[in-house]
Design a protein around this nucleic acid. Structure first.
Lengths: 345, 345
DNA sequence: GAATTTTAGTAAAATGTTTTATCAATGAAT
DNA sequence: ATTCATTGATAAAACATTTTACTAAAATTC
């Protein structure tokens, strides 16, 4: 059996109170001599506090619930890693759940984690919640007094702490870059229309067109699902529209376009320019390396943890729910080039 | 405040014992009428048991500690996902820790998780432990009575449950394939020599050469570190040895070779054949698609969980520590071709 | 109708800690 | 020499459950 505080107390002939006081380093309560006796006994007996029992009385578990759509997705696994490592520094551990992008799982894990008394929850919601669901989320947070932070995606509600990316700016940067390369017919492969990130990135696309005085042509927009396959499927349609460039709302779909271009014997960027979104590690190893919009994942994760820690340490009220927005950056590699008139002949 | 079992008891005018008995569905103790009254009250009051308090008395947390070198690595994130999802089905949650491949972190997380009373630990060790460390691991497992399972990598000790891949077979399959394509000078980029998987995959390589009656030439072996960069750095040396094919002990390094080949204007597979190991998702989108040794990650994860569950449900003694070995398979894509004599001219 | 068994329920202990309130002893101040 | 403050330490409560051992009442048996 594991050594308990009682065992230590018995070993030194003192009360558990005294032992606990020493072990928790309570300020000037116990004289140095006693303290050292206790410390030595604890060490000799290899005492390690039972976290469960501590949680029982302190009401803190030093555990964070991390709810993500899919940990095997490169972006989320990177984010999860950063978040875990940062929390670890503060003595917190993370419990994680994969929702597979379904709303029921969002709530299921949230409740599960709250039953386990996590101190806080960080989540990337699977979709844009309805009024009812937002309300429900709030009630859960309030009733259990657990701070919830949205990362990467947020809800239409200002009451949640959020740390996000300026998705619209990302869409703008990508599109603007293609426009300045001379492209006029720029197709866009979106993610699911129900997702805010799809909408926001597309808004950036529209905004860039507008600023350049170019018309927005709905025929150039194809709805995808953020997976490789939808890039594959989108290409024939895009070619049919005589687009000379494509803005893919994520890199996975861009990879799909690459693949399909090879089947059509089209070369990138000579025959088709393409810009992705996310900057996953593989981009630079594609042929040609994929130009994309990079997200500062590490900064996002680090900020999220730091912010959450200020809340957990009571320095900040979670109800003063501000939103932090990080800026994406265009990463030029080799998948887009100047528009050449000859290509149209 | 959250509803407690006391609140429910008070609401229905019964004791907490009765409420607990009903809620835990203890067989034929409480008559149906009473049971329904309690159930209704629990529902009305939105009662959810406090997991911490339950753990306090049952000594079970329904939590698993998952210790991995790097969750942002495609192989591990996929594995982690499978493991989490499977455990979730059984009502278990997983706490995970990134060790970044350092031994100290292996132990740090192990102790941390044990302090949190996890019911079991599944880990991929960061290196091949020394006698002392193996002993230490055993003591921790025994003293705390927590089953530890090794996945993907194991130790030189038969006392741990392990679920592994037949690494040697993988090495054999890859090399044998290249030999049968007519290659005679086959270079091999290994992982860190201290890792068993490096050694075992290399053994498969040697074994295939031997079976084919080919000599083993140490000059054709380059030590890498499983990262893209070591593939990049290995190529010039490999070319210097006049190798016509390369077996890269993982796909990431193969990607490095791809990149460097482009710089040298060498085309794959005409100028250099290459076979990787792991079968990460990107392989099929490379140009040419990368032939590789595929690991059945999903099966591995599912088996690991199932096996651990039999131990947790007391059907099996963790000390009867058997090892399960999965078989890898060669996945032929387009990165290796028949050896043409002309290339040597 | 007495003895026995079954039914329906409960009081209290136990889990491993922290924390609150308290106490005895010592030393200092009046 | 009494009072007061300080020091060193502790007993007991609290946390939210489950579980053990028990009892009173009802039902059954003879």
């Amino acid at each position: 059996m594991r050594t308990t505080v009682k065992d230590v107390a018995k070993a030194v002939g003192l009360s558990t109170t005294t032992v606990s006081l020493v072990l928790n380093n309570k300020p000037n309560r116990i004289p140095k001599a006693t303290r050292e006796i206790v410390l030595k006994a604890a060490k000799d007996l290899n005492y390690r506090p039972n976290h469960i029992a501590v949680s029982m009385v302190t009401k803190k578990t030093h555990t964070i619930g991390l709810i993500l759509p899919d940990i095997s997705n490169l972006y989320f696994s990177e984010l999860a890693k950063v978040i875990e490592e940062q929390f670890h520094k503060y003595g917190y551990n993370v419990l994680y759940g994969n929702t597979n992008g379904t709303l029921e799982h969002d709530f299921e894990y949230l409740n599960l984690f709250i039953d386990r008394s996590v101190d806080a929850v960080i989540m990337t919601v699977s979709s844009n919640y309805s009024e009812k669901e937002i309300k429900s989320l709030h009630e859960i947070a309030e009733m259990n007094n657990v701070p919830i932070m949205m990362v990467d995606r947020t809800l239409d509600d200002p009451r949640f702490m959020s740390v996000l990316l300026d998705q619209k700016l990302g869409g703008y940067l990508a599109t603007n870059y293609l426009i300045h390369l001379g492209h006029r017919k720029i197709a866009c492969i979106t993610g699911p229309k129900s997702l805010r990130i799809s909408i926001e990135r597309l808004e950036g696309y529209k905004s860039a067109l507008q600023d350049a005085g170019l018309p927005f042509d709905p025929a150039l927009i194809v709805e995808g699902d953020f997976r490789v396959d939808s890039g594959v499927q989108a290409l024939p349609y895009i070619l049919g529209q005589n687009a000379t460039a494509v803005f893919s709302l994520n890199d996975m779909m861009a990879i799909g376009v690459y693949r399909e271009c090879r089947r059509y014997h089209l070369s990138i960027p000579q025959d088709l320019s393409i810009v992705g979104f996310d900057d996953i590690f593989i981009d630079e190893f594609l042929e040609p390396p994929l130009s994309t919009i990079a997200q500062p994942v590490v900064e996002i994760g680090e900020y999220a943890v730091k912010k959450m820690m200020t809340v957990l340490e009571g320095e900040e009220d979670p109800s003063c729910a501000d939103t932090m927005v990080f800026k994406p950056a265009l990463k030029v590699r080799g998948s887009a080039s100047k528009f050449m008139e000859k290509k149209q002949m």
